[in-house]
Design a protein around this nucleic acid. Structure first.
Lengths: 156, 156
DNA sequence: TAATATTAGTCAAGATTAGTCAGAGATGAG
DNA sequence: CTCATCTCTGACTAATCTTGACTAATATTA
């Protein structure tokens, strides 16, 4: 099962480092040079293979001394509930349904009551209303809830 | 963790002092000489890394005997600082400044690390971007952060 | 008080990184 | 063979760091 494309090879290279260390910090252009590809391909590899769903957290900085840092996080067991809730959230969700999602998470003991209240404050109608546009608020609510749920997959 | 730029190194130097003392007082030109940079780079380091968002208060004096003094403030002792943060949030705030505020709240033990990560997920650019409009995202971020901070203020 | 010396502040240009996006190219299933 | 999807490229964009010329405030000296 040889890797047929460079993206797979770069992925393997990074994961090999991550097998021994909890994180890896690279200079984008150096890794691109190493594999004789354009720098933006590194972004492609990261975007397609080091997602939060797969248990990776990526951060970066531009400018002098810039870097890309990939961290491997430990995924929790028993998170099927997150996937089913993510399906329900979809691309748009009402305040009422969003509140139900948060309650479910609380009752599943994935959130404390304080954490639940923080999220409710964030997806409140007043926080998300722009130009009195309910549909936009619903879209934003789904984006925020999805992002939060994806971060609940792991523990620090 | 190789700080490849001088600003990071100067930041680390100052924070090392602040880890032991509640404040640090420097002569700008001396620190600039120490790291072989122009004096105005010290201003850059302070402006980007020792803001009130980050939990620091800076004062200075020009002329003979001039100095720059950096003080680490404690949120728990200073309700006024929470007000300052709300002022800074205003009606629009960047992802960077918003992130700094959340991290400061965590370091001040007003948030657990999980609570901080939930908020960071909620105010992430990807969560708030609608129609690729950064200014709208900044406005939403300020609304969400204000809501959460006000919630924290009236809690135990 | 006025002139001079001694500090720090501001700002914008240039350098140095990473990010985005649309389109071209490659691959594989049917 | 064709279409859908994945991979790869490069032009353009954005963020961050570094520098230095100019400005402003304060202290000292004449």
């Amino acid at each position: 099962m040889q890797s047929k494309n460079v993206s797979d090879i770069i992925e393997k290279y990074l994961k090999q480092i991550l097998a021994e260390a909890s994180h890896v910090e690279i200079r984008r252009s150096e890794v691109a040079d190493l594999f004789h590809v354009v720098p933006s391909q590194i972004n492609y590899v990261i975007k397609t293979r080091f997602t939060i769903q797969n248990g990776y957290v990526v951060e970066s900085k531009r400018g002098g001394g810039g870097y890309i840092r990939i961290e491997k996080v430990k995924l929790l067991d028993n998170i099927e509930v997150l996937d089913s809730l993510l399906d329900i959230i979809g691309t748009s969700i009402s305040e009422r349904d969003g509140g139900s999602i948060v309650k479910t998470l609380y009752h599943s003991q994935l959130l404390t009551s304080k954490e639940a209240r923080i999220i409710l404050a964030a997806i409140d109608k007043d926080s998300l209303m722009i130009n009195n546009d309910i549909e936009t608020a619903n879209r934003l609510r789904s984006q925020i809830l999805s992002s939060v749920l994806n971060h609940l997959r792991f523990e620090d």
